[in-house]
Design a protein around this nucleic acid. Structure first.
Lengths: 207, 207
DNA sequence: TCCGTTCTTGACCATCTGATCAAGAATGAA
DNA sequence: TTCATTCTTGATCAGATGGTCAAGAACGGA
């Protein structure tokens, strides 16, 4: 006899635990090998579940991928959302760059996951880029432009400033293998000092 | 009856033409889909050859990939090799950044090919990174350090300056899809102006 | 304890993909 | 023209991989 109530959608303890396991494993594997380079078996092995069991929770490989992307997106954008128009521009940019760099050092897999997705044409998050991300960037561009108009920081096309910040900070995760090969594992604080100087020294207002 | 002379290794006209076709097609496809995401059929179709014919020239998929990587490496490093210790530091860095940016705009596929390779752990060029690239960077770091010691540019850890330049310039190719989605196709000269300002304004010597 | 629901798995399947091979076609030096 | 070498291809294969299924095990509210 069918239930009268609609599908409860409440999640079992087991469900929660296993979905966690799967998504954690999936982030690890997808960020290392990319979407095509990752096999469902790999994710299953890493998560400790059997393949059919894994596919009981996520019916298709693509569903796992999308879930991982979505779960990571929010955290990834948080620092930019937090840019405060009221605060001191240089201090605020310093805070933003610093937070982004910490993110890179603490969650390099997340960075690589996005890098790979975008590198291959953003087939799964194109809509997100043209929608929410574009809107967020535009609002922050307006903030920066106002700072510039008030003469509080040097005048540069704001989008390029944002792209440069993204580029430099994420580089330490995305190209980490290269960096390690060339100059060894970078020290976080030395990196922070150098990156902040390079990106911001030119932003101080010209008196 | 076997030839007395050793394998001549001289290349036929047809050989040259077809290897060109294959490598051009392969760069296109590999840079779009990555190593694992690319199928031999795709390369064959794009180059206009049949799959068995393609495999007559390169016996394994990996051989094609390696050939493309190798062919692209040299051009990719040329600008850095050209850093002239004798010239004016700021002018020289300007020239380098500008050349790197042109490379990014003119050959984005090359940039994406490397980005993908490194993102996935540089399984094919690890030796190159730890050898020739490391050596080249170290020699240029020495040049920049001298400039700093002479007070001709601001003092920042030179490797980080180099990484920042790589990051920002290559970003316009590797993350091109994202940039286009957020702020439209970037104009080369506006980009050049902004990037040069952001990266170099802080490098001017403090009087 | 009972029993419907949720969870787990071994076996299996269809498709994709890298690679091979034998046989025929084109090429070009003598 | 001759013929050894180079080039081309249809047919085919083996292994990898995403996904299914039926049947049994574990769970948990009543």
């Amino acid at each position: 006899m069918p239930k009268v109530q609609a599908a409860p959608a409440r999640k079992t303890r087991i469900q929660n635990r296993n979905e966690q396991l799967i998504l954690d494993a999936a982030l690890e594997v997808f960020s290392s090998f990319g979407y095509r380079g990752t096999t469902v078996d790999q994710i299953a092995a890493r998560s400790g579940l059997s393949k059919p069991n894994l596919l009981y929770y996520f019916r298709r490989k693509e569903d796992i991928y999308l879930a991982v992307l979505e779960r990571t997106l929010e955290a990834w954008l948080a620092p930019l959302s937090a840019l405060d128009p009221g605060a001191d521009p240089i201090a605020e940019l310093t805070r933003y760059i610093s937070a982004k760099l910490d993110m890179t050092f603490d969650r390099p897999e997340a960075s690589r996951l996005f890098a790979n997705e975008i590198l291959h044409g953003a087939p799964h998050i194109g809509k997100f880029l043209r929608g929410p991300l574009k809107a967020l960037v535009e609002s922050k561009v307006a903030v920066i432009r106002r700072w510039m108009a008030e003469g509080r920081i040097a005048a540069v096309e704001p989008v390029h400033l944002i792209y440069s910040i993204w580029a430099v900070t994420q580089h330490y995760a995305d190209f980490g293998v290269q960096i390690e090969a060339v100059s060894g594992k970078p020290d976080r604080e030395s990196t922070r000092r150098a990156v902040l100087h390079i990106l911001l020294a030119g932003m101080r207002p010209v008196r």
